[in-house]
Simulated scan of single mutants.
Amino acid sequence: MTNDTLKIPVFIPLIIGIIAISFSSIFVKWSDAPVSVQGMYRLVFTLFLMLPFTLKHIKALKSISLRKWLLLLLSGTFLALHFLFWMGSLKLTTVASSTILLSLQPVFVMAGAYFAFREKTSKPAIIGMLVAITGAVMIGWGDIGISKQHIQGDILSILGTIVVAVHMLIGQKLLKTIPAAIYSFSVFLSAVIVFAGYNTLLHIPMTGYSDKDWGIFLLLAIVPTVFGHVLFNWLLKYVTAATISMAILGEPVGATLLAYLLLNETLTFSQWAGGAIVLLGLYYFLKNTRILKKDKPPAPIKSPVTAGPIVKKG
């Protein structure tokens, strides 16, 4: 970790990541496979794609302590739970509703970062966050709570939002001392193990799926995972977890538009207006969010979630 300055404008990789993760909900909707199987193979293919880059940092494994390995396992567990909850929500509710609730992630991340890292955010940044969240709520306002099934989907999306916030906060802590490639590979491998155990316990078939489903598994690995989650993990070296979470607010805009074009999910005027407000709030937040300096380690944190120093969070 010798560099603490990004050599390209931060908005470029952020926009690439937002576009990539916006396709995630579309791919999930297109597949008929159980979400736990989609999540598992999504990460299995990602591991194969990452392997050549990860091997370059193989020597770094010797410096990882047992405590850090446990945190990596914990981060992977929360990532698996995120995919399980959020991808499950897409089977019960609309893309707009699911991604809207997922966009509330900055609320949990900022709260966790404050208690875990004593990380403060400027008032203008908070205003930007509130504006963006207001726009996000407008996008999905007409869809949320339409039926019991929609409510169940909403609850799953909220649970997915909470656990991904924890995942990201752990990442912010570990990436201070662990190369991004090692971090992502270890976390994804941990998540695959969790998924495999889950599928085995519930007797969910892990083979016998159509060529279409296998193609979607691969697309999930390449587009939203590599160009989305892996990219955001790398960016955590240069910006705060709250900044990454705020950038992800762009996902509801992209996902809702894609759902309109590819899934024939209709959009209301409030959803169009909300999308514009999300982008405005996102820009204002990013403009007023400080760059995280790597030479200033976070304050020790205590959290009931991690039974020790805390963890932070798609």
Rank of each mutant, 00 (worst) to 15 (best):
V192D: 06
T240R: 05
I26L: 08
P9C: 15
L43N: 01
P309V: 07
V137P: 13
L156V: 11
D213Q: 10
M246Q: 06
N233K: 10
G197H: 12
P298S: 00
L43W: 05
Q152L: 13
K313N: 06
V37I: 14
T46L: 06
T46A: 13
V187I: 11
L169K: 03
K148V: 05
T54A: 10
D213C: 05
L51W: 15
D4C: 05
L220A: 02
E119F: 00
Y198G: 04
S190C: 10
A276W: 05
Y284T: 09
K7G: 01
I16M: 11
H167F: 15
L66E: 12
L14M: 13
F23S: 07
T77Q: 05
N288G: 15
Y284E: 04
I222W: 00
A136N: 04
G274K: 12
I291S: 12
A242H: 01
K312C: 02
D154Y: 05
L282F: 05
T177S: 15
Y41R: 10
L101M: 02
S89P: 03
S270W: 12
I139R: 04
V192K: 14
P300T: 02
S63V: 10
Q152A: 12
A111M: 07
W30L: 13
L102C: 07
A165Q: 01
I178Y: 03
G197E: 09
L174C: 09
R67N: 15
K313Q: 02
L73I: 11
G254K: 01
K313W: 02
A181K: 08
L262H: 09
S97T: 14
T77P: 01
S245E: 09
L175R: 15
H57E: 14
V311E: 01
K7E: 11
L249E: 06
G153A: 05
S97H: 03
L261Q: 10
S186D: 08
F48Y: 14
V192H: 14
I244D: 00
P297K: 11
I162G: 02
L55M: 14
S186G: 12
I12G: 12
S103V: 04
N264G: 09
D211F: 11
F108A: 06
K62G: 07
H203M: 09
I170M: 03
I310Q: 14
L257F: 15
R42M: 00
F188T: 01
L280G: 08
A20C: 01
G145L: 03
W69R: 15
T306D: 09
D154I: 04
D213I: 04
I126T: 12
W141T: 14
D32L: 13
A96P: 04
I301E: 06
I222M: 09
T134R: 11
I146E: 09
D32Q: 15
M40Y: 00
T306A: 15
V305R: 13
A276N: 03
K294W: 01
F195A: 08
P224S: 00
I144E: 06
Y114E: 11
